[in-house]
């Protein structure tokens, strides 16, 4: 059994209006040190072990559905664990 953590973020070249709004809010709250805020997504997947390489499977899922390569980057962490 694998536990997979996927992080999807907007590419640096893509403006993030949500992040900009949150940054403004933080500044208004008095956190003047905030220089930038980028909002992304975090996903947790549980995967059964198969014959297929788990990295290959996760990469494929990230590129086909979990992220949109036109505007987003992704990274992931894979942890092997015992099925409960």
């Amino acid at each position: 059994m694998y536990k997979v953590k996927v992080y999807v973020t907007l590419r640096e070249s893509v403006l993030d209006p949500q992040g900009t709004a949150v940054k403004k809010s933080l500044k208004t709250m008095g956190y003047g040190a905030v220089e930038d805020v980028r909002i992304g997504k975090y996903m947790e997947l549980s995967l059964e072990k198969t014959d297929r390489d788990v990295h290959e499977t996760v990469k494929e899922m990230c590129e086909r559905l979990l992220s949109n390569p036109v505007i987003e980057d992704y990274r992931y962490e894979i942890e092997e664990c015992v099925a409960q």
Binding site: L15, P17, Q18, A21, I71
Partner: peptide
């Protein structure tokens, strides 16, 4: 079609 959609600038 090429490209992608982002959230409206005004949110």
């Amino acid at each position: 079609l090429p490209g992608a959609m982002r959230r409206n600038e005004s949110l």
